[in-house]
């Protein structure tokens, strides 16, 4: 059973008033929505608030979801991106939660030496900092594409723009990321590309 079919089944049960179905629907998407929100606002508390808003809105408006227009995941992502934009606008200067950024738990291979682990951490930090530097629309495009594997059509639906625009935003994000990583040191870029 595909994710969408599973979601449609749960939605039907939710609309019949089955409380456990809401829990199951939340569990199916919560982690992904949190990752998306955190990657856009880069602040733990803000991301939590947005996730809460997204699910409260979605559950209260479940009747309005039209499965013919988009997948449930795309609908949730659209709400999440819109709420993240509101949060971003409210706080023009986003409060970056560096403590969270630098404590990313990347599973390390067993044979990894401390030097290699440090290099991995540096690369991840550099990439995260580069993402923070990106303009919001490019960040949205690159996070949806590479963080969540959405197609250009789906990205376009979520970002409310034509598919070609979504494609060009991903391309622009690529170019910017390369420049940003180069500005942090050629060595770091080489290191990033060597893994």
């Amino acid at each position: 059973m595909s994710e969408q079919e599973q979601a449609l089944g749960l939605i039907a049960r939710c609309l019949q008033g089955e409380q456990i179905a809401y829990t199951e629907l939340y569990e199916l998407y919560a982690a992904g929505i949190y990752r998306l929100c955190y990657s856009l606002v880069f602040h733990k508390q803000d991301a939590e608030d947005v996730v809460q808003e997204v699910f409260v809105y979605a559950f209260k408006n479940l009747k309005r979801y039209d499965s013919d227009k988009s997948a449930f995941k795309t609908w949730l992502y659209t709400i999440a991106v819109s709420r993240c934009r509101n949060t971003y606008r409210r706080k023009r200067l986003p409060q970056i939660d560096f403590s969270q950024i630098f404590q990313l738990n990347i599973p390390a291979p067993q044979s990894e030496t401390p030097e290699a682990a440090l290099a991995q951490r540096n690369v991840q930090d550099a990439l995260t900092e580069a993402l923070i530097e990106l303009p919001l629309n490019l960040r949205e495009a690159v996070v949806l594409r590479y963080g969540h594997g959405l197609t250009y059509r789906e990205i376009a639906d979520v970002m409310n723009c034509p598919a070609k625009t979504a494609e060009s935003r991903v391309r622009l994000a690529h170019q910017r990321l390369r420049k940003l990583l180069q500005s942090q040191g050629q060595g770091l870029l080489e290191e990033l590309l060597s893994f």
Binding site: R35, L104, V123, L127, Y146, G147, L193
Partner: peptide
């Protein structure tokens, strides 16, 4: 570009794991 894309696919999903 191919390497950068590979890196992005590998590392971006690691950002913001709850």
């Amino acid at each position: 570009q191919r390497e950068l894309q590979h890196e992005l696919k590998m590392r971006v999903p690691g950002i913001g794991i709850p």
